[in-house]
Structure formats: C-alpha cells, structure tokens
C-alpha cells in the first residue's frame, strides 16, 4: 500500500513569516487541465497594507547593506532554487501546463535571472552614475539609489520566471517589494517564498501575496507609503491599468506601465535576457555638490 502523502498548506509571505490571510479565506488552485492542486490563501487589502508596513520597516536596512552583501544574498536565492529545482519544475509544469523539458528551461532561466541581477548590485551605480564637470570649483557627483517601497503586480501567465523577472530588479538596488502574485498560478510563488526565507533575504524585503490582485491592487496604488508601482501583471486580468496609474498620482508614485499593444496590456516574453530598464524604473538620482578649495 502506498504511503499517504503529507500535503502542504500554502500561505502568504509577509515580513519574513508565513501567515494565513487575515481574512481567513482561501481559494482553489487548479492546474491547466482543471485538476485541483491546492487551496491558496486569498490575500485581502489588509494583507496588502500589512505587507507595506513590513516592507517599509525592512527597506532602510536592505538599502543600507553593502552592495556586495546584497549581491551575495541574491545569488544565494539562486543557489537555494537550484537545490529545489525538481520541485520548481514540477510546480511550473502543473501551473503553466508545460512539458517537463519546457518547464525545466523556464526554471533554469528563472535561476539564471537571479544570478544576472545579483551581479548588478555593485555595478549599476557605476554604469548609471556620473561625475559631472560643472563650470566652477565644485566636486559634483550623481548616483542612483533605491526609491523605497515598490508595489508590484506579478505576471499572470509566467508564474515563476515572470515573477522573478519583476521582483529581482526591484530589490537589486535596495528597494523592498510588495508583490501580488499570479491569481491562477500562485504555487511557484509560495515555493519561491520558501527559498527567499532560507537565503538570507531579510524578512520584509520581499512580500508575496496570493489571491485576486483586483482586491489589493487599488489600495496599493493609492497607498501613501508606497513609492512606486509596477503594473506588469495587469495583463490578463480585468484590472484597468489607467485607473491604477491615476490612483498612483495621489503621492506621485513612480509607475512602470505594463507592456502594451496599443493601449492594451500584454504579457511580455520573459526568456530573453533583460536590459536595465526595469532596474532604472525604481531608482532616484541623487546629486551632491561640494566646493573644492585649499
């Protein structure tokens, strides 16, 4: 007789802990053929606000860590994912309906994406910053730094590679992230949370909320203590990105619009190596002047 399997309870990831939704709700998650996979926590707007509090608390420490340290921590995420690769492949295959080979390629790309971004922590400031030759006896330097707390809608289709491609460029520079995961494909996100929790990413730097993004997204878009909004994951939902962007104007959040076909949000192809534009979306340029003299 075969052994009875121990099933996992899937929860949210907020402030480094795995709470259930404060709402006490869950929802059924199925594979692409409609077969039951699990009950996932159905995050609420209050969960979103709690995640913002956790993200705000964690952000200064993360931004204040050395770039070398952030790079090692993010590289460690890749290491942990690699060690659990078969689990990720299985979950991505179930969530996205891919062949095992295709799912393997997607998970490889997700792991490699962490490695790519981990390498940027101590380089983007050199590439994007400048010494400015002003017309006077002044030392003048401009460097990029993190904008603060970023709320992000993760892609709906690409449950792992898309998620990593959105989250990594946010946190590379020292931002913290509140991420609403794919509604129908949340399980790889929770397994990613387990990898994050065991890879020295400080609690609160990345917060993952499963459920229907339509519940929390409007509240995050208008939240006064959120500095930027990534709308990538509106593609494939009923959410109106124009309304979310308009709500973000209340405290002049930096908004990264979704990929567009005309004015319709579309999900981009996540396999190619990205450019710097996502990383740049969540940076501020600070310029410092000082006189020169004997």
């Amino acid at each position: 007789m075969s052994r009875v399997e121990v099933k996992k309870t899937y929860k949210l990831y907020i402030g480094g802990a795995f709470p259930r939704s404060e709402s006490g709700r869950s929802y059924e998650v199925s594979d692409t053929k409609g077969r039951f996979l699990a009950n996932a926590a159905k995050g609420s707007r209050k969960d979103g606000r709690d995640a913002v509090v956790a993200a705000r608390k964690a952000q200064p420490g993360w931004a204040g860590a050395t770039a070398y340290n952030r790079g090692q921590v993010l590289y460690r995420v890749a290491e942990i994912m690699e060690s659990r690769k078969s689990q990720f492949v299985e979950e991505v295959r179930a969530a996205e309906g891919l062949t095992p080979a295709r799912a393997g390629a997607v998970v490889d790309a997700a792991i490699d994406r962490w490695v790519w971004y981990a390498g940027w922590t101590d380089k983007y400031a050199q590439v994007l910053g400048s010494i400015n030759p002003v017309a006077g006896p002044y030392f003048n330097i401009s460097g990029p730094e993190a904008t603060g707390v970023v709320a992000a809608l993760a892609p709906q289709r690409s449950s792992l590679l898309g998620l990593v491609s959105v989250v990594a460029p946010i946190v590379v520079s020292g931002n913290s992230a509140v991420v609403l995961t794919s509604r129908d494909r949340p399980i790889p996100a929770i397994t990613l949370a387990e990898a994050l929790a065991t890879s020295d990413v400080p609690g609160g730097v990345i917060n993952l909320i499963t459920g229907d993004p339509a519940e929390a997204a409007p509240w995050l878009a208008s939240h006064r203590d959120v500095n930027a909004l990534d709308l990538t994951g509106v593609a494939g939902t009923d959410l109106d990105w124009a309304q979310l962007e308009a709500a973000a104007a209340g405290n002049l959040k930096r908004v990264r619009r979704p990929a567009l076909d005309g004015l319709t949000a579309i999900e981009e192809d996540w396999l190619p190596t990205p450019d710097l534009s996502r990383l740049e979306s969540f940076l501020e340029t600070k310029t410092v002047w000082h006189p020169k003299g004997r």
């Binding site: 400015n132 002003v134 310029t287």
Partner: peptide, 21 residues
C-alpha cells in the same frame, strides 16, 4: 535629489536636478 554641502543653490547644465517623492 540635490544635496548641497557647504554651498547652496548651485546649478549647472551638466548636473542633474530633480526630486524624490
């Protein structure tokens, strides 16, 4: 976005200017 140390209100075409928040 702009921090002036031991000076203030300096502007130059080569020097980025603009704000946070």
């Amino acid at each position: 976005g702009v921090v002036w140390a031991n000076t203030f209100n300096r502007f130059d075409p080569a020097s980025p200017f603009g704000g946070y928040k």
